[in-house]
Amino acid sequence: MPNTGGPELHVGKLQKFRLFRPILAGATLRERVIACLGALAGITLTGLICGWFFGEGPHIPLIVAPMGASAVLIFAVPASPLAQPWPVIGGNTISAFMGVLAAHFIPDPVIAIGVGVSLAIAAMSLTRSLHPPGGAAALTALIGGPAVTSAGFLFPLFPVGLNSVILVVLGIGFHKLSRRNYPHRAVAAPVNTHGTADRPAPLRVGFQAEDVDAALEALDETLDIDRADLDRLLRQVELQALVRARGTLTCAEVMSRDVITLGLDGSAEKARHLLITHNIRTLPVIDGAGRLAGTIGLRELTLQGAVGLRAVMSEARTAGPDEPVIGLVNALTDGRTHAVVVVAEDRRVLGIITQTDLLATLTRLLSDKTFAPSDPVAPQAA
Protein backbone atom coordinates (compact mmCIF):
# COMPACT_ATOMS: atom_id res chain seq x y z
CA MET A 1 0.00 0.00 0.00
CA PRO A 2 1.57 3.34 -1.00
CA ASN A 3 2.55 5.77 1.70
CA THR A 4 0.34 8.86 1.38
CA GLY A 5 2.34 10.78 3.93
CA GLY A 6 -0.34 10.87 6.61
CA PRO A 7 -1.22 13.95 8.68
CA GLU A 8 2.34 15.29 8.58
CA LEU A 9 2.30 15.62 4.78
CA HIS A 10 -1.13 17.27 4.90
CA VAL A 11 0.08 19.84 7.44
CA GLY A 12 3.18 20.47 5.32
CA LYS A 13 1.04 21.23 2.28
CA LEU A 14 -1.08 23.60 4.30
CA GLN A 15 2.03 25.41 5.50
CA LYS A 16 3.23 25.86 1.90
CA PHE A 17 -0.05 27.41 0.85
CA ARG A 18 -0.08 29.85 3.76
CA LEU A 19 1.76 32.25 1.45
CA PHE A 20 -1.41 32.55 -0.60
CA ARG A 21 -3.71 33.35 2.30
CA PRO A 22 -4.73 36.97 3.05
CA ILE A 23 -2.22 38.58 5.39
CA LEU A 24 -4.66 41.17 6.73
CA ALA A 25 -6.77 40.32 9.76
CA GLY A 26 -10.45 40.20 8.86
CA ALA A 27 -9.84 39.99 5.10
CA THR A 28 -12.56 38.10 3.25
CA LEU A 29 -13.27 37.32 -0.39
CA ARG A 30 -16.17 39.78 -0.36
CA GLU A 31 -13.92 42.55 0.96
CA ARG A 32 -11.33 41.88 -1.74
CA VAL A 33 -13.98 41.95 -4.48
CA ILE A 34 -15.28 45.27 -3.16
CA ALA A 35 -11.70 46.59 -3.09
CA CYS A 36 -11.17 45.60 -6.72
CA LEU A 37 -14.40 47.25 -7.84
CA GLY A 38 -13.57 50.37 -5.86
CA ALA A 39 -10.09 50.65 -7.34
CA LEU A 40 -11.52 50.14 -10.84
CA ALA A 41 -14.01 52.96 -10.37
CA GLY A 42 -11.66 55.23 -8.42
CA ILE A 43 -8.63 55.12 -10.69
CA THR A 44 -10.65 55.22 -13.91
CA LEU A 45 -12.76 58.19 -12.85
CA THR A 46 -9.75 60.03 -11.44
CA GLY A 47 -8.02 59.72 -14.82
CA LEU A 48 -11.14 60.84 -16.69
CA ILE A 49 -11.75 63.83 -14.44
CA CYS A 50 -8.12 64.97 -14.62
CA GLY A 51 -8.21 64.52 -18.39
CA TRP A 52 -11.24 66.78 -18.49
CA PHE A 53 -9.35 69.40 -16.44
CA PHE A 54 -6.01 69.32 -18.25
CA GLY A 55 -6.79 67.84 -21.63
CA GLU A 56 -4.85 64.88 -22.94
CA GLY A 57 -1.29 65.50 -23.98
CA PRO A 58 2.37 64.99 -23.06
CA HIS A 59 2.67 68.28 -21.17
CA ILE A 60 1.55 66.77 -17.82
CA PRO A 61 0.46 63.28 -16.67
CA LEU A 62 -3.27 62.84 -16.09
CA ILE A 63 -2.66 60.60 -13.08
CA VAL A 64 0.55 59.77 -11.27
CA ALA A 65 1.67 56.24 -10.37
CA PRO A 66 1.43 56.64 -6.55
CA MET A 67 -2.36 56.89 -6.93
CA GLY A 68 -2.41 53.16 -7.62
CA ALA A 69 -0.89 52.49 -4.20
CA SER A 70 -3.23 55.03 -2.60
CA ALA A 71 -6.17 53.20 -4.19
CA VAL A 72 -5.03 49.93 -2.56
CA LEU A 73 -5.18 51.57 0.86
CA ILE A 74 -8.44 53.48 0.33
CA PHE A 75 -10.39 50.57 -1.12
CA ALA A 76 -8.70 47.49 0.40
CA VAL A 77 -7.92 48.67 3.95
CA PRO A 78 -10.18 51.69 4.55
CA ALA A 79 -9.86 51.36 8.34
CA SER A 80 -6.07 51.86 8.25
CA PRO A 81 -4.83 55.14 9.74
CA LEU A 82 -2.61 55.39 6.62
CA ALA A 83 -5.68 55.36 4.32
CA GLN A 84 -7.62 58.25 5.83
CA PRO A 85 -8.35 61.42 3.77
CA TRP A 86 -5.69 63.66 5.31
CA PRO A 87 -2.84 61.12 4.99
CA VAL A 88 -3.82 60.45 1.36
CA ILE A 89 -4.11 64.10 0.33
CA GLY A 90 -1.54 65.60 2.65
CA GLY A 91 0.93 62.72 2.44
CA ASN A 92 1.02 62.63 -1.36
CA THR A 93 1.08 66.40 -1.84
CA ILE A 94 3.65 67.15 0.86
CA SER A 95 5.88 64.29 -0.29
CA ALA A 96 5.75 65.45 -3.90
CA PHE A 97 6.77 68.91 -2.72
CA MET A 98 9.74 67.41 -0.83
CA GLY A 99 10.78 65.62 -4.02
CA VAL A 100 10.58 68.80 -6.10
CA LEU A 101 12.54 70.64 -3.39
CA ALA A 102 15.30 68.01 -3.40
CA ALA A 103 15.50 68.04 -7.20
CA HIS A 104 15.74 71.83 -7.22
CA PHE A 105 18.62 72.13 -4.73
CA ILE A 106 20.59 68.88 -5.19
CA PRO A 107 22.15 68.39 -8.64
CA ASP A 108 23.27 64.77 -8.07
CA PRO A 109 20.18 62.63 -8.89
CA VAL A 110 21.29 59.68 -6.73
CA ILE A 111 21.67 61.84 -3.64
CA ALA A 112 18.52 63.78 -4.51
CA ILE A 113 16.27 60.70 -4.58
CA GLY A 114 17.52 59.57 -1.17
CA VAL A 115 17.14 63.01 0.36
CA GLY A 116 13.71 63.50 -1.25
CA VAL A 117 12.22 60.31 0.16
CA SER A 118 13.84 60.93 3.55
CA LEU A 119 12.40 64.46 3.69
CA ALA A 120 9.02 63.10 2.63
CA ILE A 121 8.93 60.65 5.57
CA ALA A 122 9.99 63.37 7.99
CA ALA A 123 7.44 65.86 6.68
CA MET A 124 4.60 63.32 6.73
CA SER A 125 5.50 62.31 10.27
CA LEU A 126 5.51 65.91 11.48
CA THR A 127 2.20 66.70 9.79
CA ARG A 128 0.54 63.44 10.91
CA SER A 129 -0.06 62.50 7.28
CA LEU A 130 2.02 59.33 6.98
CA HIS A 131 1.03 57.61 3.74
CA PRO A 132 3.31 54.98 2.13
CA PRO A 133 2.58 56.06 -1.48
CA GLY A 134 3.98 59.45 -0.48
CA GLY A 135 7.46 57.99 -0.88
CA ALA A 136 6.58 57.12 -4.47
CA ALA A 137 5.17 60.61 -4.98
CA ALA A 138 8.52 62.08 -3.90
CA LEU A 139 10.36 59.75 -6.30
CA THR A 140 7.99 60.66 -9.14
CA ALA A 141 8.80 64.32 -8.61
CA LEU A 142 12.50 63.45 -8.93
CA ILE A 143 12.53 60.98 -11.82
CA GLY A 144 9.21 61.61 -13.55
CA GLY A 145 10.72 62.93 -16.78
CA PRO A 146 10.38 66.19 -18.73
CA ALA A 147 6.64 66.62 -18.08
CA VAL A 148 7.18 66.57 -14.32
CA THR A 149 10.31 68.71 -14.49
CA SER A 150 8.54 71.37 -16.55
CA ALA A 151 5.69 71.54 -14.03
CA GLY A 152 8.17 72.49 -11.29
CA PHE A 153 6.63 73.49 -7.97
CA LEU A 154 3.13 73.20 -9.43
CA PHE A 155 3.55 69.41 -9.73
CA PRO A 156 2.64 68.71 -6.06
CA LEU A 157 -0.68 70.49 -6.62
CA PHE A 158 -1.43 69.53 -10.23
CA PRO A 159 -1.73 66.63 -10.72
CA VAL A 160 -0.66 65.03 -7.39
CA GLY A 161 -2.88 67.06 -5.06
CA LEU A 162 -5.81 67.04 -7.46
CA ASN A 163 -5.46 63.29 -8.08
CA SER A 164 -5.47 62.67 -4.32
CA VAL A 165 -8.52 64.86 -3.64
CA ILE A 166 -10.53 63.23 -6.43
CA LEU A 167 -9.55 59.73 -5.32
CA VAL A 168 -10.55 60.44 -1.71
CA VAL A 169 -13.91 61.95 -2.74
CA LEU A 170 -14.60 58.94 -4.95
CA GLY A 171 -13.55 56.63 -2.11
CA ILE A 172 -15.99 58.29 0.30
CA GLY A 173 -18.80 57.96 -2.22
CA PHE A 174 -17.99 54.35 -3.08
CA HIS A 175 -17.76 53.23 0.54
CA LYS A 176 -21.02 54.97 1.35
CA LEU A 177 -22.73 53.04 -1.46
CA SER A 178 -21.15 49.76 -0.30
CA ARG A 179 -22.10 50.56 3.32
CA ARG A 180 -18.56 50.61 4.63
CA ASN A 181 -17.07 53.00 7.15
CA TYR A 182 -14.86 55.57 5.39
CA PRO A 183 -13.43 57.89 6.59
CA HIS A 184 -12.91 55.44 9.41
CA ARG A 185 -14.35 56.53 12.74
CA ALA A 186 -13.35 54.49 15.74
CA VAL A 187 -16.22 53.56 18.04
CA ALA A 188 -16.22 55.90 21.02
CA ALA A 189 -14.96 54.39 24.25
CA PRO A 190 -17.51 53.89 27.05
CA VAL A 191 -18.11 57.02 29.10
CA ASN A 192 -19.49 57.64 32.58
CA THR A 193 -23.04 58.89 32.06
CA HIS A 194 -23.66 59.64 35.73
CA GLY A 195 -21.56 62.79 36.07
CA THR A 196 -19.14 61.29 38.60
CA ALA A 197 -15.37 60.78 38.55
CA ASP A 198 -15.61 56.97 38.36
CA ARG A 199 -14.58 55.13 35.23
CA PRO A 200 -17.39 53.52 33.20
CA ALA A 201 -18.23 50.02 34.43
CA PRO A 202 -16.65 48.14 31.47
CA LEU A 203 -13.34 49.92 32.05
CA ARG A 204 -13.03 49.20 35.77
CA VAL A 205 -12.13 45.53 35.32
CA GLY A 206 -9.79 43.73 32.97
CA PHE A 207 -6.93 45.46 31.21
CA GLN A 208 -6.48 49.24 31.35
CA ALA A 209 -5.29 51.78 28.78
CA GLU A 210 -1.86 51.86 30.41
CA ASP A 211 -1.62 48.08 29.95
CA VAL A 212 -2.12 48.50 26.19
CA ASP A 213 0.54 51.22 26.10
CA ALA A 214 2.95 49.05 28.06
CA ALA A 215 2.34 46.11 25.71
CA LEU A 216 2.98 48.27 22.65
CA GLU A 217 6.19 49.55 24.24
CA ALA A 218 7.28 45.99 25.03
CA LEU A 219 6.62 44.83 21.45
CA ASP A 220 8.60 47.83 20.16
CA GLU A 221 6.81 47.72 16.80
CA THR A 222 4.60 50.12 14.87
CA LEU A 223 1.20 48.56 14.14
CA ASP A 224 -1.09 49.69 11.33
CA ILE A 225 -4.17 50.08 13.54
CA ASP A 226 -5.74 53.02 15.32
CA ARG A 227 -5.09 53.06 19.08
CA ALA A 228 -8.82 53.21 19.87
CA ASP A 229 -9.52 50.34 17.47
CA LEU A 230 -6.82 48.27 19.16
CA ASP A 231 -8.42 48.82 22.56
CA ARG A 232 -11.84 47.87 21.16
CA LEU A 233 -10.40 44.76 19.50
CA LEU A 234 -8.83 43.53 22.73
CA ARG A 235 -12.06 44.05 24.67
CA GLN A 236 -13.96 42.13 22.01
CA VAL A 237 -11.40 39.33 22.30
CA GLU A 238 -12.11 39.21 26.05
CA LEU A 239 -15.83 38.98 25.36
CA GLN A 240 -15.38 36.24 22.72
CA ALA A 241 -13.28 34.22 25.17
CA LEU A 242 -16.08 34.55 27.75
CA VAL A 243 -18.67 33.51 25.16
CA ARG A 244 -16.56 30.49 24.22
CA ALA A 245 -16.20 29.46 27.86
CA ARG A 246 -19.75 30.22 29.02
CA GLY A 247 -21.68 30.76 25.82
CA THR A 248 -23.98 27.74 25.69
CA LEU A 249 -26.97 29.65 27.08
CA THR A 250 -28.94 31.54 24.41
CA CYS A 251 -31.01 34.69 24.58
CA ALA A 252 -34.17 32.66 23.91
CA GLU A 253 -33.60 30.67 27.11
CA VAL A 254 -33.19 33.74 29.30
CA MET A 255 -35.46 36.40 27.80
CA SER A 256 -38.76 37.52 29.26
CA ARG A 257 -41.45 36.64 26.73
CA ASP A 258 -44.41 38.60 28.08
CA VAL A 259 -43.05 41.94 26.89
CA ILE A 260 -44.77 45.22 27.70
CA THR A 261 -44.84 47.23 24.46
CA LEU A 262 -46.43 50.39 23.11
CA GLY A 263 -47.67 51.16 19.62
CA LEU A 264 -45.96 53.83 17.58
CA ASP A 265 -49.13 55.91 17.62
CA GLY A 266 -49.26 55.89 21.42
CA SER A 267 -48.76 59.00 23.53
CA ALA A 268 -45.93 60.01 25.84
CA GLU A 269 -48.40 59.99 28.73
CA LYS A 270 -49.30 56.36 28.07
CA ALA A 271 -45.62 55.43 27.80
CA ARG A 272 -44.93 57.04 31.17
CA HIS A 273 -47.90 55.21 32.71
CA LEU A 274 -46.69 51.80 31.47
CA LEU A 275 -43.12 52.39 32.63
CA ILE A 276 -44.20 53.36 36.14
CA THR A 277 -46.99 50.80 36.50
CA HIS A 278 -44.81 47.85 35.46
CA ASN A 279 -41.66 49.22 37.18
CA ILE A 280 -39.53 48.93 34.05
CA ARG A 281 -36.91 51.22 32.49
CA THR A 282 -37.19 50.31 28.82
CA LEU A 283 -40.37 50.12 26.78
CA PRO A 284 -40.17 48.70 23.23
CA VAL A 285 -42.16 50.69 20.67
CA ILE A 286 -43.67 48.72 17.78
CA ASP A 287 -45.19 49.78 14.48
CA GLY A 288 -48.53 48.69 13.03
CA ALA A 289 -47.06 45.42 11.73
CA GLY A 290 -45.68 44.50 15.16
CA ARG A 291 -42.05 45.27 14.21
CA LEU A 292 -39.68 47.00 16.60
CA ALA A 293 -39.35 50.72 15.86
CA GLY A 294 -37.34 51.83 18.90
CA THR A 295 -37.40 52.06 22.69
CA ILE A 296 -38.39 54.68 25.20
CA GLY A 297 -37.67 55.25 28.88
CA LEU A 298 -38.46 57.76 31.60
CA ARG A 299 -35.25 59.63 30.87
CA GLU A 300 -36.26 60.37 27.28
CA LEU A 301 -39.73 61.42 28.38
CA THR A 302 -38.33 63.71 31.08
CA LEU A 303 -35.82 65.40 28.77
CA GLN A 304 -38.11 65.85 25.79
CA GLY A 305 -41.43 66.61 27.48
CA ALA A 306 -44.84 65.23 26.61
CA VAL A 307 -44.61 65.01 22.82
CA GLY A 308 -45.09 62.25 20.24
CA LEU A 309 -43.18 59.00 20.61
CA ARG A 310 -41.35 59.42 17.30
CA ALA A 311 -39.58 62.48 18.68
CA VAL A 312 -38.37 60.89 21.91
CA MET A 313 -37.73 57.19 21.32
CA SER A 314 -34.18 55.89 21.03
CA GLU A 315 -32.69 53.31 18.69
CA ALA A 316 -33.16 49.86 20.19
CA ARG A 317 -30.30 47.53 21.09
CA THR A 318 -31.28 44.15 19.69
CA ALA A 319 -30.16 40.52 19.65
CA GLY A 320 -31.28 37.33 17.96
CA PRO A 321 -32.86 34.47 19.93
CA ASP A 322 -29.99 32.09 19.15
CA GLU A 323 -27.21 34.49 20.19
CA PRO A 324 -25.33 33.65 23.42
CA VAL A 325 -26.64 35.72 26.29
CA ILE A 326 -23.07 36.32 27.50
CA GLY A 327 -22.57 38.38 24.35
CA LEU A 328 -24.87 41.05 25.80
CA VAL A 329 -22.41 41.97 28.55
CA ASN A 330 -20.95 44.94 26.65
CA ALA A 331 -24.33 46.33 25.66
CA LEU A 332 -25.87 46.09 29.13
CA THR A 333 -22.85 47.61 30.90
CA ASP A 334 -22.35 50.66 28.67
CA GLY A 335 -24.07 53.00 31.16
CA ARG A 336 -26.93 53.80 28.77
CA THR A 337 -28.66 50.54 27.82
CA HIS A 338 -31.00 49.01 30.40
CA ALA A 339 -32.43 46.25 28.20
CA VAL A 340 -31.79 44.43 24.93
CA VAL A 341 -34.81 43.53 22.80
CA VAL A 342 -34.72 40.02 21.30
CA VAL A 343 -36.17 40.12 17.79
CA ALA A 344 -36.84 37.77 14.89
CA GLU A 345 -35.32 38.38 11.45
CA ASP A 346 -38.30 40.57 10.51
CA ARG A 347 -37.81 42.61 13.74
CA ARG A 348 -40.89 41.19 15.46
CA VAL A 349 -40.38 41.39 19.22
CA LEU A 350 -39.81 37.95 20.74
CA GLY A 351 -38.63 38.92 24.20
CA ILE A 352 -36.48 41.24 26.26
CA ILE A 353 -33.39 40.80 28.44
CA THR A 354 -32.74 43.39 31.14
CA GLN A 355 -29.70 44.12 33.27
CA THR A 356 -31.41 42.21 36.08
CA ASP A 357 -31.86 39.17 33.83
CA LEU A 358 -28.19 39.26 32.82
CA LEU A 359 -27.00 39.62 36.41
CA ALA A 360 -29.10 36.65 37.51
CA THR A 361 -27.79 34.58 34.60
CA LEU A 362 -24.15 35.45 35.26
CA THR A 363 -24.56 34.61 38.94
CA ARG A 364 -25.79 31.13 38.06
CA LEU A 365 -23.17 30.54 35.40
CA LEU A 366 -20.27 31.66 37.55
CA SER A 367 -21.42 29.49 40.44
CA ASP A 368 -21.32 26.50 38.02
CA LYS A 369 -24.92 25.59 38.69
CA THR A 370 -26.94 23.94 35.98
CA PHE A 371 -29.22 26.41 34.25
CA ALA A 372 -31.95 24.55 32.43
CA PRO A 373 -34.21 26.29 29.88
CA SER A 374 -37.19 25.41 32.08
CA ASP A 375 -35.79 27.31 35.08
CA PRO A 376 -37.79 30.42 36.01
CA VAL A 377 -36.35 33.68 34.77
CA ALA A 378 -36.92 37.10 36.26
CA PRO A 379 -39.74 39.02 34.53
CA GLN A 380 -39.10 42.17 32.52
CA ALA A 381 -37.35 43.99 35.34
CA ALA A 382 -36.17 47.47 36.07
Rank of each mutant, 00 (worst) to 15 (best):
M1H: 12
P2G: 04
N3T: 11
N3Y: 11
E8R: 12
K13L: 14
Q15S: 09
R18M: 12
R21P: 08
G26N: 06
E31C: 13
A35T: 09
A35Q: 08
C36K: 07
G38A: 14
A39E: 00
L40M: 15
G51T: 15
F53K: 07
G55L: 06
P58Q: 05
H59G: 06
A71G: 11
I74K: 05
F75M: 03
F75D: 01
F75A: 09
A76I: 13
V77A: 04
V77M: 09
P78H: 04
A79M: 11
S80R: 09
P85K: 13
W86G: 08
G90Y: 13
F97R: 09
G99S: 08
V100R: 05
A103Q: 08
V110N: 13
V110E: 10
I111F: 11
I113T: 01
S118R: 01
L126A: 15
L126K: 15
P133L: 03
P133G: 06
G134L: 04
G135C: 02
A138F: 09
L139Q: 09
T140N: 11
I143E: 02
G145T: 10
P146S: 12
A147H: 13
A147R: 11
T149K: 13
G152Q: 10
V160Y: 05
N163H: 11
V165H: 02
L167Q: 09
H184P: 09
R185N: 14
R185H: 15
N192T: 09
T193I: 07
H194P: 05
G195Y: 11
A197N: 07
A197P: 00
D198V: 13
P200G: 05
A201N: 02
A201S: 10
P202V: 01
L203I: 02
R204Y: 05
G206S: 15
L219S: 03
L219Y: 04
E221N: 13
T222S: 13
D224H: 10
I225Q: 01
D226N: 08
L230P: 10
R232D: 13
L233E: 14
L233H: 14
L234M: 15
R235N: 14
E238R: 12
A241P: 01
V243H: 08
R244F: 02
A245V: 04
R257H: 02
D258H: 02
I260P: 10
I260K: 15
G263Y: 12
K270I: 06
A271K: 00
I280F: 10
G288A: 14
G290Y: 04
L292S: 14
T295E: 01
G297D: 13
G297L: 07
E300M: 06
L303V: 10
G305I: 06
V307F: 02
G308R: 10
G308I: 09
R310Y: 12
A311R: 04
A311C: 06
V312A: 10
V312W: 07
A316N: 04
A319P: 10
G320N: 04
I326D: 04
G327F: 05
T337L: 08
V340S: 03
A344F: 05
E345T: 10
E345W: 07
R347Y: 04
I352V: 08
T354F: 00
Q355N: 06
Q355E: 05
L359C: 11
T361S: 04
R364P: 06
L366C: 10
S367D: 15
D368Q: 03
F371W: 14
P373S: 12
V377P: 08
V377M: 09
A381P: 01
A381F: 01
A381I: 08
A382N: 11
